[in-house]
């Protein structure tokens, strides 16, 4: 628990340092990268609730990321075109208010995750992976073939949405917004894992049979975790859409699901700060390796294979072991 906290603080400090470097060094590009890392970290933190704490290997989290993104894109585009979202049974207008958009994004992702989780949990095990992947793909194809919001080409909007009187188009401000949201979410997750529900979730992961024998249904617990997980990843999607001022079916693709999973694995599965660390490293690799070759994901793939085969537990695992060694030397 203690090491988990220190690791999380270290990851958050590193991310803040990257942002500060961008701000004081007057490098808006770095600020954008740091905001992207915060958003990816948030998406990964969402997935981590299902994957790390619940043991649910979801390969469909791009669905929630994309739903969040489209929620932002669609609401904003309706507001800018002064077209109501719908006229029946009640008239609903679009909005450019970021908090409203965030709430809608989270609701939409949560609502979609409910039937998806229910169906995927019907059999569990390896089916869960295949079914989550398939449902995300369904949404992807829907977004590609539904022309109203840009279809394959996606949907752009020109300014970020509004948050109080803040200058959201200013990269520094936008980074701080994303960073603050990430920090709040991490605190909430830390509380959640220490709650009654966190206890039940651990048991659902490590020994579902025992949990059922206590009179607590493992599927209900896991489904709840899945929905919470989807809601957070949906929020990340809304922020990502605002970051790019663009949404496209790519946010819904299986490749995105894989990447979100990579953030978690690189950082450390089931570790609070893992996804943040993983997202930072991912973006670092993208920049460094991407500078050498356009095919940098080839190298990323090789690195991932080696990391997993060595069984290192990601960056958090490395951090633990270095600490353990130091501890042993002192003691």
């Amino acid at each position: 628990m203690r090491r988990d906290l220190i690791f999380t603080l270290a990851a958050m400090a590193a991310l803040l340092a990257a942002g500060l470097y961008g701000y004081f060094g007057d490098e808006p590009f770095y600020l954008t990268l740091a905001a992207k890392a915060a958003i990816f970290g948030l998406a990964g933190a969402g997935l981590n609730i299902a994957l790390g704490y619940g043991g649910l290997v979801s390969l469909g989290h791009a669905a929630f990321f994309g739903i969040g993104g489209y929620a932002a894109g669609i609401l904003a585009s309706h507001a800018r075109n002064y077209e109501p979202l719908m006229t029946w049974p009640v008239e609903l207008a679009g909005t450019t208010s970021a908090p409203v958009i965030w709430i809608v994004a989270m609701l939409a992702a949560g609502l979609f995750s409910l039937p998806m989780g229910l169906l995927s949990l019907r059999t569990g095990g390896v089916y869960f992976i295949m079914i989550t992947l398939a449902f995300a793909q369904m949404l992807y194809y829907f977004a590609v073939s539904w022309p109203a919001y840009g279809g394959e080409d996606g949907l752009s909007f020109y300014v970020r949405n509004e948050l109080g009187g803040l200058q959201t188009m200013n990269p520094w401000i936008w980074f701080l917004v994303c960073y603050a949201i990430l920090a709040v979410v991490l605190v909430l997750i830390a509380i959640l894992t220490r709650s009654r529900f966190g206890l039940a979730l651990t048991m659902a992961r490590e020994n579902p049979l025992r949990l059922a024998n206590l009179g607590i249904g493992p599927k209900r617990v896991l489904l709840t975790a899945f929905v919470i997980s989807a809601i957070l990843t949906g929020l990340a999607g809304a922020l990502y859409a605002d970051l790019n001022r663009f949404v496209s079916p790519a946010m819904l693709s299986w490749h995105m699901s894989g990447e979100i999973m990579v953030f978690v694995i690189l950082g450390g599965v089931g570790r609070l700060g893992g996804p943040v660390a993983g997202a930072c490293v991912f973006i670092l690799l993208e920049q460094v390796l991407g500078g050498f070759t356009e095919y940098w994901q080839f190298l990323l793939g090789l690195a991932l294979i080696i990391i997993v085969l060595m069984g290192s537990g990601g960056l958090a695992g490395l951090f633990d072991r270095s600490g353990a060694k130091k501890g042993a030397a002192h003691g």
Binding site: Q297, G301, L309
Partner: peptide, 30 residues
């Protein structure tokens, strides 16, 4: 690669075979 994964959990299998996709996809593109 895969031989080392038979006794591992599904998560390891998923991530390593996902990594293999990256390698093959980018390798072929190259």
């Amino acid at each position: 690669v895969l031989r080392r994964l038979y006794r591992r959990d599904h998560l390891d299998q998923v991530i390593v075979t996902f990594a293999l996709i990256l390698v093959f996809t980018e390798g072929t593109r190259w």
